[in-house]
Amino acid sequence: MAKIDFLLAGVGGQGTILASDVLAAVGLRTGYDVKKSEVHGMAQRGGSVTTSVRWGIKVYSPLIGPGEADFLLAFEKLEALRHIEMLRPGGIVLVNEYAIPPLSVSSGSDEYPDDERLRAVLGALTPNYYLLPANALAEELGNTRVNNVVLLGALSHWLHDVPLPIWLEAVRNRVPPRFADLNEQAFLVGRQEMEKTHPCPRV
């Protein structure tokens, strides 16, 4: 493929950076030119954050424009809604079925959008949206923190040209050694979850 653009969306402190590091490493190992763009500073204090990773023969801009993302990887439901217009119509959306209510919601002045609305909005852009209980699956493994790697595993199912060992190596290289096995398991759990529900990937 000439290019693949990934937009990762989440809440500051959620571990989107690790996931984007893995994606960048996998792209490079697969032979693509890669650029990655992160947000640092103030937004990291619990704000809405996005990271972009672009694979291509030659990548110029490090950013992804509206309608350009081939994949939207959302680590939180509201953030999936917030950034959905970045997706190319028909692109693939993976959403962690997990809500972090912003302050205005927890104090009762705003309402958190319900799942029906989430599905309707995502569905208006693409039939290829998938909600995964990444936090719950991570919790089963004993550590909710690896929810980001669960989601990556699910994503890998849609990139079947990339051999599994490249993914696993990239994941293991980017976590402290004592968490390497846990993260590998998390990755495989996410991948299997996606395989179970959607056996034949088509991109």
Partner: peptide
């Protein structure tokens, strides 16, 4: 023009950075 779709999603609760 890149064909982006702006779906009707209604107002979303903002998520500004906050004191931890």
């Amino acid at each position: 023009q890149v064909k982006a779709v702006q779906p009707e999603k209604g107002a979303l609760p903002p998520r500004p950075p906050v004191l931890c």
